[in-house]
Design a protein around this nucleic acid. Structure first.
Lengths: 239, 239
DNA sequence: ATAATACACGAACATGTGTCCTATGTCAAG
DNA sequence: CTTGACATAGGACACATGTTCGTGTATTAT
């Protein structure tokens, strides 16, 4: 079985499918051995081997030494399941429009300051409205807010200048998640990928032209929220 | 501490709050000992004791002997979060909701067929709803429809697999616009940049890995619509 | 052909983790 | 005061679970 350096092998897909479904069905992730069973592999090390690859490819993330801590970042389902999934998503009760407070502009490149006090105040006129049916059902509406992106530091994550990002308030984040963070010393807010390393926190832009920001002191940084949705208006020529 | 036969004690609430937040932040549930730490209790048995009560009261459920298998059935959050939740709920204006028919899936990579008849039929239940405030005011609502993107041929245009694109019906397009086109011979629909050249029409993917499609006969191609908006849900770990 | 790499197995290991037993303290009711 | 239900602590125990190492075998590159 030759394997490619790029793309998912058959095993990768099987594991990812199993992870997606198991997690969805049980609310917690399977253990290494349960994953092994699902693909008829006795060796736990082999499963670990594939899991590391999937993590490297950003399909999952896990917390070292913590059992059942696998998170599926990019759900993978067989085509059949995908369709029914989409249908379920769409078919969900469309009854509810959600106003998400739009707090202002966030710089994805060079960070710019956003007064923290803004978070406290909510002006309904400057809100972004979206249908609840568009959001994952688990999202608690109260914790959502919107920002307009300025800068191009996240283009590799398909987030462009001018896009509107919907975020969920959060104080913590898992590795690899896209977050808006407030840099206390600089009094600036910026949009980056979040990575916690040994003693430091790395804020990684998705554009190789930008260098990551390293934070030694955890107090110097406050996570404002995680990105849950991106909305972009595409300009067209016609009126 | 006083005992209760009914209702949640202070400890119950603390545990439930911790469970709710931990699960949301991490995507997996805490261990018995982590729960103990959160309420400054050293004894695992005591945590187990409370967990059993919470399970009996249907606030959580767990899988026997499976680590980190606690599921929060009734999320419990501190009063502060609850209040702001209620406020937002009240403050939102539900006046202008637009239902956009969602016709199906469009392949941005290898095109797949979408029966043309689908375009005729409009099932309001399978729609995507968007607040009018998000759309350019000139858009005529009746001309809009939505598709889910499959494939990665448009990644350089920041459109990814799984994104939802909102299109406006159109029969023509200007050079450089992103359009959904129906390839008559193949009976396939696909998402591409549109370029009219001397005698041919070039359908250009935004991913250099894909080759453009050249169309000699203008009749072999029908423009279905132009992309006016892109919506993407970003997966996060939290459940 | 040979080396390097990717894939695979199994077992050993440390420790994470749920379960359960015993003991002690507290307080209201009998 | 005694009793008993509840609350709390500590810890032993079994086993679930992630990690790592040694070994072997294909496949690919040189």
């Amino acid at each position: 079985m030759a394997r490619r350096s790029e793309g998912l092998s058959d095993r990768h897909k099987k594991i990812l499918t199993f992870l997606t479904q198991f997690t969805e069905n049980n609310g917690y992730s399977p253990s290494i051995r349960e994953i092994g069973d699902s693909i008829s592999v006795k060796s736990t090390s082999l499963v670990d081997y594939y899991l590391n690859q999937l993590e490297e490819m950003k399909f999952i993330s896990r917390e070292g030494r913590v059992s059942r801590s696998i998170r599926v970042l990019k759900p993978y389902l067989p085509a059949s399941a995908k369709v029914s999934n989409a249908l379920r998503q769409v078919g969900r009760t469309i009854d509810d429009l959600i106003a998400i407070p739009r707090l202002g502009v966030i710089q994805a490149g060079q960070p710019i300051p956003i007064p923290a006090s803004d978070l406290a105040y909510f002006d309904s006129e400057s809100g972004v409205e979206i249908a609840r049916s568009l959001l994952p059902s688990r999202e608690k509406v109260s914790d959502l807010f919107a920002l307009e992106v300025q800068g191009d530091s996240m283009i590799d994550a398909s987030i462009n200048d001018g896009d509107i990002v919907i975020l969920r308030q959060a104080q913590e984040a898992a590795n690899g998640e896209m977050v808006a963070v407030w840099l206390v010393d600089r009094d600036e807010t910026t949009l980056k990928y979040f990575y916690r390393e040994k003693d430091t926190i790395r804020l990684q832009p998705a554009n190789p032209q930008y260098a990551p920001i390293m934070i030694d002191n955890p107090k110097a940084l406050r996570i404002m929220g995680k990105v849950v949705m991106v909305i972009r208006q595409v300009p067209t020529v016609a009126g």
